[in-house]
Design a protein around this nucleic acid. Structure first.
Length: 212
DNA sequence: GTCCAGGGCCGTT
DNA sequence: AACGGCCATGGA
């Protein structure tokens, strides 16, 4: 398959950073890291990662850089949560999205880890029922925070598809299917490949990956 | 000042 | 199913 060849090509091109990346995602993530990934996934919707970092920094300063923290602050003072999140843009919607997500996790599953113990399909369905969590955000959460084998289709993936003429259709489901059937069903490969597609697309930093 | 950044929702066709 | 308008900030 051409897609698998492209994956190997990226591995060769980014051999060194890829090793770094594989090492990073191989080691077991702690709760804090998983939760930061989730919050970041929601905050980064149609938004520059730099702005997301500002919002995350505000949350950390307010001791709310966690699902429980967002839930606690949001329940008491949604306006405060808005001001913390403001730099990430679309802040009123994102405040609602973050809060209702945290509420869902805490009240229905106690913790993110408990939620993620369920099967991939179950988790995905439940995430998609939440308003403000669409396929890309859901899959980012499942792949990067949940280490579950689902391929993420985002703007970078679409550009990659166009650049290499992999398809003339660009719908989320179609492209996800295309990648998943062209690759071994392997979390590490999905994470690695997608990360390198992003890396290749902007030829720069680790963004999602780097600790803030 | 202008443009744009790793979506998703909602209304219209 | 597909498309357009909308949400908002900070940096280039």
């Amino acid at each position: 398959m051409k897609i698998y060849q492209l994956y190997l090509g990226l591995l060769k091109k980014y051999g060194k950073p890829a090793r770094f990346w594989r090492k990073w995602c191989k080691r077991k993530k702690n709760t804090q890291e998983r939760e930061e990934i989730v919050l970041g996934a929601i905050l980064t919707q149609r938004t520059n990662w730099k702005n997301v970092e500002l919002a995350l920094k505000n949350l950390r300063r307010a001791k709310a850089l966690s699902i429980e923290g967002v839930y606690r602050i949001g329940k008491k003072n949604l306006k405060l949560l808005e001001t913390l999140i403001k730099p990430s843009g679309f802040y009123k919607q994102k405040t609602k999205r973050l809060f209702q997500f945290s509420k869902f996790i805490i009240e229905n599953h106690c913790s993110l880890e408990r939620f993620l113990e369920q099967d991939l399909e179950i988790c995905r369905e439940q995430l998609l029922e939440l308003s403000g969590i669409g396929p890309e955000t859901a899959d980012s959460i499942l792949l990067y925070a949940g280490d579950k084998p689902v391929f993420v289709i985002d703007e970078y993936t679409r550009r990659f598809v166009k650049k290499h003429n992999l398809s003339d259709k660009f719908s989320y489901h179609y492209l996800q299917d295309l990648f998943e059937k062209s690759l071994p069903k392997d979390v590490k490969i999905y994470q690695d490949f997608h990360a390198m597609i992003v890396l290749d697309g902007k030829g720069t930093s680790w963004d999602l990956v780097t600790k803030i």
